[in-house]
Nucleic acid binder design. Sequence first.
RNA 1: GGAGAGAUGGCUGAGCGGUUGAAAGCACCGGUCUUGAAAACCGGCAAAGGGGCAACUCUUUCCUGGGUUCGAAUCCCAGUCUCUCCGCCA
Length: 419
Amino acid sequence: MHNLKEIRKDFENFKKALKKRSVDIDLNNLEKLDKQNRECILKRETLEKEKKDISKLKDKSLFDRSKKISQSIEEIIGKQKKIKDDLEKILFNLPNIPHKDVPIGKDENDNVEIERFGQIPNFDFKAKSHYELGEKLGMLDFDLATKTTGSRFVFVKDKLALLERAISNFMLDTHVSKNGYQEISPPLLASENSMFGTGQLPKFENDQFEVKLDDGSNRKFLIPTAEVILTNIVKDQILNEKDLPLRFVASTPCFRKEAGSYGKDTKGMIRQHQFYKVELVSIVDQSKCLDELERMTNCATDILDLLNLPYRKMILCSGDMGFSSEKTYDIEVWLPSENKFREISSCSSCSTFQSVRMKTRYKNQKKEIIYAGTLNGSGLAVGRTLIAILENYQQIDGSITIPKVLRPYMNNLEKISLK
RNA sequence: GGAGAGAUGGCUGAGCGGUUGAAAGCACCGGUCUUGAAAACCGGCAAAGGGGCAACUCUUUCCUGGGUUCGAAUCCCAGUCUCUCCGCCA
């Protein structure tokens, strides 16, 4: 969310910057409502002052006047409430402004490749897809998931379940011991307010799974990513500068409706309603956001290097970035069956966009209270890492070699083959 | 599911109709003292929002939303959340 105080200073520039994000919102109205809102505040405060003075004097002859003032105040409050609602409706739905490094563009086609890493495997046979491989092994079962649950879910069984667990543990261990993240095992439900804090609400309610609890209690949602719950750890807090940066990692299931992606990636486990993801979150000094983004992205690619999977690093264009992001790197892993790179991690700096929503601040050395910077990134998506390993490590007979770094997590198993 | 208790500043915790934005303690910051540190002593220390070039000033905020009153942290109603005990269950 944008800080109105800052926007006000240079409204024209703000409008220009926001244009980069192909959004179509009447910003002139925002300016107008802000002005009206402040006029209301001014009027109200003048009356409140008078009322307060009367109350202090305890002079009975003035009590009537005080009563009248109360009425006027009420009127103004009513008027202001409407103005404020309209104002917030606009403000809450404005995405973050792209950083100046971000290439201008409309959609994913305008994303820019930065660099490629690793060796693309050269099979002397036709590479199979992960779902062919998994189903043949009898360890990925989509039909069973359809039976028990519905579409876009999967059963992972036997050695692949072990592999999935190994991937998750390996990533967690690496981020904790090597990269300095604190491990968290968080709740998988988030309150409406937390969902607002990271920007999933109000605009993207359709993508979220809401959970019905007892009537009357506040709304709760299954987390679409651990980012929501990890970032909101610092909600409503004034931190000490010396405590920064804070770095959290969690491996959690994520739940997404995938509304609007009908017919997209329907086969296999690329796009599921539920998937495991290891998530990294950093809370930093606002001036250090971009440095931290590089660091975080390196933490993510580090995993791919260790797994020896080929990938490329992309910078997303202004039109393809997430709502809260000022700058995003996508890491795409090579999938032989599709003969292309697919997203396996997304690392974003959200500047102060989320902390304004969450009211996360810290005191700097000048004792000023300023908004913190927040970042999040996948390190990595576990399901998609499983896919990438299946496809890149497949053998001609349909067996899968286990990457060396994962073997200690799998009783030194070297290969998964048909039972 | 049944029975209670509570929600106040970064934290602990007083206040229970009228300069209370809020005692006290801790933490924190500055100073004196000290070779340095600690201790002791002195002083400072909430946030949000509005106005002003600025010094500064005003308003709001004691869980949330209503109500009573000239005036509410304090009284009334509704809700949310937290804690304790019993029962049940992983």
